[in-house]
Design a protein around this nucleic acid. Structure first.
Length: 455
DNA sequence: TGGGGTTAT
DNA sequence: ATAACCC
């Protein structure tokens, strides 16, 4: 019999092991974080697929947008998220490739994350083209191996932000320099093994690492020493450039007269907490000082798989069903390759509206267990029952007897669980995130409302 | 504005 | 189920 005390012990041992984030010895809690950011990722993948595109101005198109482009195109005035019309106007020689199918980008993206995980297992993905790695442990190991002669010969790899003087007697400087060495090795490995170039930023937390990685652009790296962190954050022209402060928060801050990072630093904490809520207020005000204690959370395998398609107009149930079938077919291939089984399915729509084009509605429900079991297994028809469920979710959201106008459909498979032999009552049971009630974030998961679809 | 993702409430 | 954030 396992006592609750023992379960507690195993839980913490599990956290320390999985997260691998042991604070360096000596009482210091200073970390070394690298942010790795691939150069115009989709365009790079396209140039690898078709080398004839190299050297030409290249844009990747989704619908009527150029979502990204290579540096040849940028030199000629093409920007990210420019419309195809504007881009062609600016740059008539622009070569366009369609990038609506993300399969090759997604596959290359995970190859990058896996490569970085070989350096240290603590890798957090941010989108398809960015990764954070916590180098604290690796740096400490290398630093302790350093002989006295090697320490005095230690040099920085890449740029030092603000051309700051490096002091080899300062242990924080030494750690960050070792971090810059590892960052250089990571970029070298990405180029040699995958043919990809990118930037890296090394600093003491995720916010600063991310900000400093973009200082020298493309295919370069920069390290931030602690004494220059204020210079870095003050270099931002507006609070909206701060990662973590998005569209909505920016609007609310502007309503309070807060525009610059300095404005946010000096604004009354009490009033900010009343306006934005204590959680957001405290977090973003810390960010404004360059403080960010959020851990690098290992992403691991994806939590959800989704496929979406946007269009000018979908106004009939048959049309919707055809699009939903297409989305689902792709998803089933992906989920089959992954091996895990989704236990929840969700349908997302966007209704036409001249203004609020961002708002989406969704309905989700459990996938019946007999359907889950048939998921990986060959040619059993799993499409029909799942399309039936999706159409019920559809009719739950859309009154098909009334005229409707949709501009997006999306299907999401989530609540993924590993096939496992772990039995209830064993240690494995409590250590398997998908089985115990403890989610990856270490917080209690709570029940989501599922819409009930009758058979 | 695309086609994805995550976490918090 | 939605709203916020990220790319």
């Amino acid at each position: 019999m396992i006592s609750s005390l023992n379960i507690f012990f195993y839980f913490f041992a599990y956290c320390a092991l999985v997260h691998g984030q042991v604070v360096p010895e000596g009482g210091s809690s200073s970390r070394v974080i690298v942010h790795v950011d691939l150069d115009c990722f989709y365009a790079q993948v396209e140039m690898i697929s078709n080398p004839e595109l190299k050297g030409k101005p290249l844009g990747v198109q989704q619908k009527y947008l150029v979502v990204t482009c290579n540096y040849e195109a940028r030199k000629l005035g093409v920007k990210k998220l420019m419309t195809v019309r504007d881009a062609k106007e600016k740059c008539p020689q622009l070569v366009l490739v369609n990038g609506e199918d993300l399969t090759r980008y997604r596959e290359m993206s995970y190859k990058v994350t896996e490569l970085l995980e070989e350096f240290s297992p603590v890798v957090e993905r941010l989108g398809f083209d960015e990764n954070f790695v916590d180098l604290t442990e690796m740096v400490e190991k290398r630093r302790q191996q350093l002989q006295s002669g090697e320490l005095s010969a230690l040099t920085v790899w890449g740029h030092v932000y603000n051309d700051q003087y490096v002091n080899l007697h300062d242990i924080l400087h030494v750690r960050l320099l070792v971090g810059s060495q590892i960052a250089a090795e990571m970029r070298e490995a990405m180029y040699n093994q995958l043919g990809l170039t990118g930037c890296a930023g090394v600093a003491s937390n995720k916010l600063l690492a991310k900000l400093v990685s973009g200082v020298f652009k493309p295919n370069q790296q920069t390290v931030l020493l602690p004494e220059s962190s204020q210079v870095l954050i003050q270099s931002l022209n507006h609070v909206k450039e701060m990662p973590g402060i998005g569209y909505k928060t920016t609007k609310r801050l502007e309503a309070l007269g807060i525009r610059s990072v300095r404005d946010l630093q000096t604004f009354s904490s009490k009033i900010l907490e009343k306006e934005l809520g204590i959680s957001v207020a405290q977090r973003i005000q810390k960010l404004s000082f360059g403080e960010d204690n959020s851990p690098v959370t290992p992403s691991g395998p994806p939590q959800s798989f989704s496929e979406e398609d946007s269009f000018k107009k979908c106004s009939s149930e048959v049309e919707a069903k055809n699009k939903i079938e297409e989305l689902l077919a792709s998803l089933l291939n992906r989920v089959c390759q992954d091996g895990r089984k989704p236990h929840t399915i969700r349908l997302i729509i966007r209704r036409y509206s001249p203004e609020n084009h961002c708002s989406r509605e969704s309905r989700q429900c459990p996938i019946p267990s007999h359907v889950i079991q048939k998921l990986g297994t060959g040619n059993y028809d799993v499409m029909t029952p799942m399309v039936d469920i999706l159409m019920k979710l559809f009719r739950n959201m859309v009154n098909v007897k009334m005229p409707f106008h949709l501009t997006l459909l999306s299907v999401c498979l989530c609540n993924l669980k590993a096939l496992t032999t772990a039995k209830k009552g064993t240690i494995d049971y409590y250590l398997t995130p998908s089985l115990s009630t403890t989610s990856r974030s270490g917080k209690r998961s709570f029940k989501m409302k599922d819409t009930h679809v009758e058979d």
